[in-house]
Computed example of a mutant assay.
Amino acid sequence: MHKYWLVMNPNDIEKRVNEMASQGWHLKKFTWIRFTFEQDEPGSYIYRHDELERFGSTYEDEYLDFLKSSGIEQVDRSGNFVFFRKPAYEGPFELYSDKKTKISNLSKKITLLSLILLLNLFFGIIGLISISGGQHTDMLKLLLNSTNILIVMLLVGPILKLMRVRKILKKELDVFSD
């Protein structure tokens, strides 16, 4: 079975993957938008995600070997986003990425999505202004520029949600000084 989810907030995706596992659908592989599941015993695994440094940092192999020696299986990797699982009968497990790294990863996503939002807003507004000046409306240009504005509207919610998650992590960082 395939599911299509856009990976904006990794915590939401992790929650969805674990909900699927509780129904007997276990993650087999994924890309940034397509998740492939296979049928198995419901609730037999618990899934966690982590975001590794890009382009293989010096500690990455050691970290992955440590997880493997702890009985944690790497399911699949797409870019720096990795899913791990462990049998549910062994109890819950956590991957402890430090809060500074999580905040940095969220900031990078927010920056990228904000840039995409601003470019679409710019081109959408400029395009709509140029169309409104003439007597004859070019429907293709109107459709393309309206699509830019639609993309802007669709990105606002996820960006705000990521900003809230980052703000919570920053507060926790200040309180617990991670």
Rank of each mutant, 00 (worst) to 15 (best):
M1W: 07
M1C: 11
H2V: 15
H2G: 09
H2S: 13
K3R: 14
Y4A: 09
W5V: 02
W5K: 03
L6N: 12
N9R: 04
P10D: 01
P10C: 03
N11P: 00
D12L: 11
D12W: 05
I13S: 00
I13G: 02
E14D: 04
E14Y: 01
E19Y: 03
A21N: 04
A21K: 05
S22G: 11
H26V: 03
H26E: 06
L27A: 05
K28E: 12
T36I: 09
E38K: 10
E38D: 10
E38S: 08
D40A: 13
P42H: 03
P42Q: 08
G43Y: 00
S44K: 14
I46G: 03
I46L: 13
Y47W: 07
Y47G: 04
R48S: 11
R48W: 08
R48T: 07
H49W: 13
D50S: 10
E51L: 12
E53R: 12
E53M: 10
S57D: 15
S57G: 15
S57W: 10
T58A: 10
T58M: 10
T58F: 14
Y59L: 09
E60I: 04
E60G: 01
D61Q: 15
E62H: 12
Y63N: 05
L64D: 02
L64P: 01
D65G: 04
D65Q: 14
F66R: 15
F66W: 10
L67A: 05
L67Q: 05
L67C: 09
I72G: 03
R77C: 09
G79T: 05
N80T: 13
R85N: 06
R85E: 04
Y89I: 09
F93W: 02
E94G: 11
E94R: 11
L95F: 07
Y96V: 12
Y96W: 12
D98C: 12
K99C: 07
K99M: 13
T101Q: 10
I103C: 04
S107P: 00
S107C: 05
K108L: 08
K108Q: 11
K108E: 11
K108V: 06
K109L: 08
K109P: 00
I110N: 02
T111F: 10
S114V: 01
S114Q: 13
L117K: 06
L118Y: 11
L118V: 10
L119C: 12
L119R: 02
N120E: 04
L121C: 10
F122A: 13
I125Q: 02
I125L: 10
I125C: 02
I126R: 08
G127N: 08
I129Y: 11
S130I: 06
S132H: 06
Q135N: 13
T137A: 01
D138Y: 06
D138V: 04
M139K: 14
L140S: 08
L140M: 13
K141Y: 09
L142Q: 08
L144F: 10
L144D: 01
N145W: 01
T147A: 14
T147Y: 09
I149P: 01
L150W: 09
L150S: 06
I151Y: 02
I151S: 01
M153R: 03
V156E: 04
G157T: 13
G157C: 08
I159C: 01
K161F: 02
K161Y: 05
K161A: 11
R164L: 09
V165A: 02
R166N: 08
R166H: 05
K167P: 01
L169D: 01
K170Q: 14
K170F: 07
K170L: 13
E172S: 02
L173D: 06
D174C: 10
D174Q: 14
D174W: 11
S177V: 11
